[in-house]
């Protein structure tokens, strides 16, 4: 069991709507902008992570939504859940953890750094899933504070069963760790590590190319519900201090997995986001064998011609 003993599990009836979470995050951000108000003012955040996990049972994929997701990613309509789609199912519950009053970092403006996912077995489209999410490993980053948001998805009823929220953890079928950075936020007394030296990016030989239209973020949001304003339009992103709106990191992950993830069976995958994909965009995509990451493993990279660092890079390996 991954949930540590002293973490209290709060069982919710249903996943909190993402729109409400973003509204709460915005209220929190506004409150913290006023001196004397708010508990996690920018630059003075980060005490401790609340020792709670949120759990919702009976989470199910909606078939039409799944089909739209598979179309968006250029994937095949299959009766199993793509890994990023599972992430999308778990995301509202994870967000609920991040917008709780006692969560020490400001949600809006947090930067998505990386994901590591164990997709332990094929997950059927009709399985009733229990999602448990919590935050852990609050630690300094060279640009602020980073935190891991863990989501565990279990299927208490088994592959063809039907079950309630009870007994999560016994049969974890999917476990994802999303790492986020709160830029410029430091826990009291925290010392930021040195910025690690980065080797020069040597673009690999491309094997594909994605043309992402300006509405890529809106399309993704309309399917998986992540309506973060930085992904929606140039205007909404600029309101949050971005140059333009950017593609969801998980959109890139979903596209990459559509062409690299094993069709059946479990696999592990990871992705690191190194530069924002401003929309619209043309992303050069490269896949190659990555024997060092295990038998049958592949590595992928998304990049822009001539850029000094890639948009993202990752690996996929069968389990």
């Amino acid at each position: 069991m991954s949930v540590v003993e002293d973490r209290r599990t709060i069982v919710l009836d249903q996943a909190p709507p993402l729109a409400r979470s973003y509204a709460a995050a915005a209220r929190k951000a506004a409150a913290s902008a006023v001196p004397g108000l708010g508990r996690s003012a920018r630059g003075a955040g980060g005490q401790e992570l609340p020792p709670v996990a949120h759990r919702v049972g009976g989470v199910r994929a909606e078939r039409s939504r799944l089909a739209r997701y598979q179309r968006l990613m250029g994937d095949t309509l299959r009766d199993s859940l793509p890994s990023v789609f599972v992430h999308g199912l778990a995301f509202p519950i994870a967000m609920g953890v991040l917008v709780a009053d006692d969560f020490p970092l400001p949600l809006l403006g947090m930067v998505h750094l990386a994901n590591r996912v164990e997709h332990r077995r094929t997950i059927g489209a009709d399985e009733a899933l229990t999602v448990t999410a919590w935050a852990e490993n609050l630690r300094p980053h060279f640009a602020g504070t980073q935190v891991d948001v863990v989501a565990e998805v279990s299927a208490p009823g088994g592959a063809d069963g039907d079950a309630s929220a009870a007994g999560a953890g016994s049969d974890v079928v999917w476990r994802g760790v999303s790492t986020y950075l709160a830029r410029g936020v430091d826990a009291p007394g925290a010392v930021r590590p040195q910025r690690p030296s980065r080797p020069d990016f040597d673009a690999p030989m491309r094997t594909g190319q994605w043309r992402l239209p300006a509405d890529t973020g809106r399309e993704y949001a309309s399917i998986l519900g992540d309506w973060n304003p930085i992904h929606l339009s140039s205007l909404s992103a600029r309101a949050l201090g971005m140059k333009r709106h950017i593609a969801h990191g998980m959109y890139s992950a979903g596209r990459a997995l559509a062409s690299t993830a094993p069709v059946a069976g479990g696999y592990t995958w990871s992705i690191e986001f190194e530069a924002p994909v401003f929309l619209p965009a043309t992303v050069q995509f490269a896949v190659a064998d990555a024997a060092e990451a295990g038998p049958g493993a592949l590595q992928f990279t998304g990049f822009k011609r001539g850029a000094s660092r890639p948009y993202f890079s990752g690996t996929v390996a069968p389990r």
Binding site: G74, M205, R206, T207, G208, Q209, W210, R211, S259, F285
Partner: peptide, 19 residues
């Protein structure tokens, strides 16, 4: 264009030609 890669046939061949 190849549906699975988004690259045209010519762009694919350019990779092979260079390789």
């Amino acid at each position: 264009g190849e549906p699975r890669t988004g690259l045209s046939m010519g762009e694919h061949q350019a990779l092979t030609t260079a390789a």
